[in-house]
């Protein structure tokens, strides 16, 4: 049994919120810079140039990369041999988010009631997904999610007979429909299998995977590559103004499902695909 005090959780979550909003991960930054070199669309190339300049200014002046600093989404793996001391872990995470969004001059974008719509003024509550895992460590992954792209996400409840072709068509349809609204170049997170909500969580999780890795399953990796190629032939391009870079990556996660179903969730993320992970 290892003891972790919630003060440590609060401090780490605070720092991660700020870090994620000012610096992209190395793979994301490199993907955008590489795309700028390769882009053949005139406006597309100009826009990618602005995105590179934007990353430089954000890092050097600590200005958030995008004004939509997102709703704080967390994936937390709690080792079953960890004892949390201090306060309730969920309260501690929300306190970290509260402090991070205040001290980092990040935007408070959360409303308390979806219909009454009064801003909570501290960007809480966060959306937290917990996993209980073996071991005595606590892994926290934070992914602030902007809603320009979130709003263009979709869930499809396909039939088993639709198969791989059905999955691919669903992804292409979602990307076409999103067009310029999701702030391309995008990263496409896809969840296949599970049930209605599992597919959606897988799709969100897929966005947090390194964009250069690819799935560990050969048939899924092949699908990711084929989809990326097909998406980039749509011509939507950076900013939706024409070009060869509509998506920077397609990441697919899968899970066993029911004999009667083939759920597919497509979670869109703009080029500001933010995620920071720490292990305590």
């Amino acid at each position: 049994m290892r003891t972790i005090h919630t003060d440590e959780i609060i401090r780490n979550v605070k720092e991660m919120c700020i870090e994620a909003n000012v610096h992209l991960s190395d793979d994301m930054e490199q993907a955008i810079r590489n795309a700028k070199e390769k882009e053949t669309g005139t406006l597309g190339k100009q826009i990618l140039g602005q995105l590179c300049e934007n990353m430089d200014i954000a890092a050097s002046e600590q200005i958030p990369i995008c004004q939509d600093t997102g709703m704080a989404v967390l994936f937390v793996k709690v080792g079953q041999d960890v004892h949390i001391e201090g306060m309730n872990i969920t309260d501690a995470i929300n306190e970290g988010v509260r402090q991070g969004y205040k001290e980092g001059y990040l935007r408070k974008s959360v409303v308390a009631d979806p219909l009454l719509r009064e801003n909570t003024k501290d960007n809480t509550p966060a959306i937290i997904h917990y996993d209980i895992v073996p071991g005595d460590q606590l892994e926290i992954l934070i992914a602030p999610k902007g809603f320009g792209s979130e709003n263009m996400s979709k869930v499809f409840m396909l039939k088993p007979a639709d198969g791989a072709e059905g999955v691919k068509n669903a992804v292409i349809e979602a990307v076409k429909d999103a067009g310029p609204n999701a702030c391309p170049p995008i990263v496409v997170g896809v969840g296949v299998g599970g049930d209605f909500e599992k597919a959606a969580i897988l799709a969100k999780k897929a966005l947090t995977r390194n964009t250069t890795e690819g799935s560990s399953l050969p048939h899924i990796k092949e699908m990711e590559q084929e989809l990326l190629e097909r998406i980039n032939k749509l011509g939507i391009g950076p900013g939706g103004l024409g070009g060869a870079t509509t998506a920077l990556a397609v990441n697919i996660e899968t899970y066993p499902t029911h004999i009667a179903g083939l759920p597919v969730a497509v979670n869109m993320c703009c080029h500001v695909n933010r995620h920071v992970k720490r292990v305590l």
């Binding site: 995105l51 954000a58 702030c183 939706g240 703009c270 080029h271 500001v272």
Partner: peptide, 30 residues
């Protein structure tokens, strides 16, 4: 702004001789 507009908005743009500009989404620091 950024992104698509509805037919009603496009009709109103033409009717009133107005203009819709896009700025680069996600370039807030710049």
């Amino acid at each position: 702004g950024k992104g698509k507009r509805s037919k009603e908005v496009i009709d109103a743009i033409v009717r009133n001789k107005a203009v819709y500009f896009a700025a680069v989404g996600g370039a807030g620091a710049l």
